[in-house]
Design a protein around this nucleic acid. Structure first.
Lengths: 141, 141
DNA sequence: TGACACCCTATAGTTACTATATGGTCAAGT
DNA sequence: ACTTGACCATATAGTAACTATAGGGTGTCA
């Protein structure tokens, strides 16, 4: 029976930690469930589904703010889903940008690493020496 | 003259924010500078060089802990630089792993995005529907 | 003397949790 | 009836690397 799930059961069914579920409730991502006589949270299959939704979004590294928005869209069925598309497009852009950035970083790091030729004294370490020189063409943040 | 730099001057010379410089001091990454009569921080060219080092490392997304280690290695000139190499190798690995992860995420997101065919009502939005379904094969972190 | 740029400290907020402390609930076993 | 143990509850603080805010002092120029 799926309508009196305790928090630990919900956790097991979603691969989510108990504390995280409580955290989502505080953050307004999961509606407050009913309580048992002993003050235990009692979840329904609605909660289960919503938590699956949240975890699916999180596994794609969407922010909790993004997820809040998506949940709002879901609850206004007459609105178009153009905003869902836009949110996703933006997220895809962000991920792609980050990949580009990390690739450049990786080659920079490999370049730096290549300056070392085996264990010498740290005072002569070319990596450390190189890190002391000014970064050219870098702007803040 | 480079031996009585005020914090704002140091900030301008390194492209670092004033508050960040003070933060590095609190964190023990920059030694405490002398003070003027009016209690202003007075930096030397040593500070300037060390801050360049820190910012260079940060531009490569090393953590402050990493940087603390590197500074320690620099100050123990008889130690070999093998540890510097190891730190860098680890960092390169982390970056490479993250790239792999983000690439897979990107294609997953593009797949999801492709399920939408233009603006329909949110209740039928295939993206939202898809996000409700269970993630298969994902384990907890 | 006042305006202004610049400096100071202390404290709280950001993100998405995680950790810690302290105590209550419930079912099974003795 | 009592205890053990798994499970649940709340409140608070910590994580990383800053950023923001409040409230006030310093130094120079007109």
């Amino acid at each position: 029976m799926l309508n009196r799930l305790k928090i630990g059961e919900l956790a097991r069914m979603t691969g989510c930690q108990v504390v995280t579920i409580r955290y989502y409730e505080r953050e307004g991502l999961l509606p407050k469930p009913a309580r048992s006589d002993g003050n235990y949270r009692l979840y329904t299959s609605e909660h289960l589904e919503q938590l699956h939704f949240i975890r699916h979004c999180r596994s794609m590294e969407m922010t909790l703010d993004d997820i809040r928005l998506l949940l709002k869209f879901r609850d206004t069925p007459e609105e178009s889903c153009r905003e869902v598309d836009a949110l996703l497009d933006q997220h895809i852009c962000d991920v792609a940008d980050r990949i580009t950035q990390l690739k450049s970083l990786e080659s920079q790091l490999r370049g730096l690493r290549g300056q070392c030729c085996s264990a010498r004294a740290a005072k002569d370490c070319r990596i450390l020496l190189s890190l002391h020189s000014e970064t050219e063409g870098k702007t803040q943040r």
